[in-house]
Nucleic acid binder design. Structure first.
Lengths: 220, 220
DNA sequence: ATTGCATTTAAACAGTTGTTTAATACACTT
DNA sequence: AAGTGTATTAAACAACTGTTTAAATGCAAT
């Protein structure tokens, strides 16, 4: 069945997205969705069986949409890993940043990360996993030697963590930043800082062996 | 008024904490709290006026309690900043980690960070701010030169971000870690890795000037 | 025109929610 | 013993929830 943008089913789907994203599954009411979609109250149950099934379809729709927006750059082969990482971090920040009023698709997926429902597993497999693998290849190129599998993952997490921080903890972060400094926390500056921070750590750290480097290299 | 542990008011306060922490303000019901506290349904409104006021008092209580548990070590003056950072990261991870079944006080405060209510501002001022300042003094000692104010904050965020990641994104992280690697993601190993990662980046990076180091130092 | 079927609609249902009420029980003072 | 103020209780209230129902509507095929 091909659905036009004005069909009742798609009207519901499009209206439900932003509302679910803002208030989560539990706090949004079917009545609110139907009012926004300008359809009858019973339509949700008619087309989606129940509220939760509509939510699952909404998450699926959000993921599909977000794949085409802010695509990761397709670098030429001679691009340095430093440049690639900078591009990766920039794109990731663009996708998730709250500063520029993140689209509801992002909010929806973030909610899934923080408070997973049944939609979370496929979200990771089909959306996060490929992106993360891509990041890890950059990490491999940056590192001097071959990385142990777990260290590789930890380094990838370190990069992602810093990007996510400015989304999850944005409210608190703003309270901890001196007002006169807030100019320096725009997206470009943050992307540059995070990239530089991780590049230094990955290139200069000794990650080849599992053992901690603190015990050997640092004074107590 | 001095309240015994068996008074109705404290019974409510103690019962409400874990429930609010697990389900958030909206999804917990007054009936559930009263059942857990073994008090009458009307007692919440009698002692706390309404549900939200009880929630605010619960957050306040949680913050007060958490200050005494997992205290940050009081290092001797000759302790190296590397060692202090390791201790800081370890304590922070201990406080917030989900692996060891975080106490409800932590969950409650995390919920406030992600979905701030009126309780968030005082939480930051009286709890997060002092801890963060403490971290920044360690960062200052680690860095080679004097840090610009905004860079100082960014470096502090970098450390906090990596600790928070393993709490906020724990579910997703577990799906991205190879099963055979999961042994290496225990608390001690993570604390060591995060510390080492940040120590290398802070000590070896050139953070004195505002300008990005990528443009000058890295090849394209 | 009539049939058949998908869609839409208003209304009702059954359950849960936070809050209020009015009656009762209790401890303490006078 | 009577009075007073606090604490507790069961019940009810009013609003809101997701879902269901049964009737009405639209519309293409017969």
């Amino acid at each position: 069945m091909i659905l036009g943008n004005d069909s009742t089913k798609t009207k519901i789907l499009l209206a439900a997205g932003p509302i679910f994203a803002e208030k989560g599954l539990r706090r949004t009411t079917v009545r609110e969705i139907c009012a926004a979609a300008e359809v009858n109250l019973a339509s949700v149950n008619y087309y989606f069986h129940d509220k939760e099934s509509l939510y699952l379809e909404t998450v699926h729709y959000a993921r599909a949409k977000q794949n085409t927006r802010f695509p990761f750059p397709d670098w030429e082969s001679h691009t340095s890993p430093e440049h690639r990482l900078r591009g990766f971090v920039t794109t990731l920040l663009q996708r998730i940043t709250v500063l520029q009023e993140a689209p509801w698709q992002v909010r929806l997926m973030m909610n899934e990360v923080l408070n997973p429902t049944d939609a979370c597993r496929t979200l990771v497999q089909e959306y996060f996993q490929p992106v993360f693998e891509r990041l890890l290849t950059i990490v491999d190129e940056l590192a001097v030697g071959k990385l142990p599998s777990d260290v590789r993952t930890k380094l990838g997490f370190a990069i992602v963590a810093q990007c996510l921080f400015y989304r999850y903890s944005n409210n608190v972060a703003l309270m901890l930043i001196k007002p006169s400094d807030q100019v320096h926390f725009n997206m470009e500056a943050l992307a540059a800082h995070i990239s530089d921070f991780c590049i230094v750590a990955i290139k200069r750290g000794h990650w080849e062996n599992d053992a901690s480097q603190t015990a050997s290299g640092f004074t107590r």
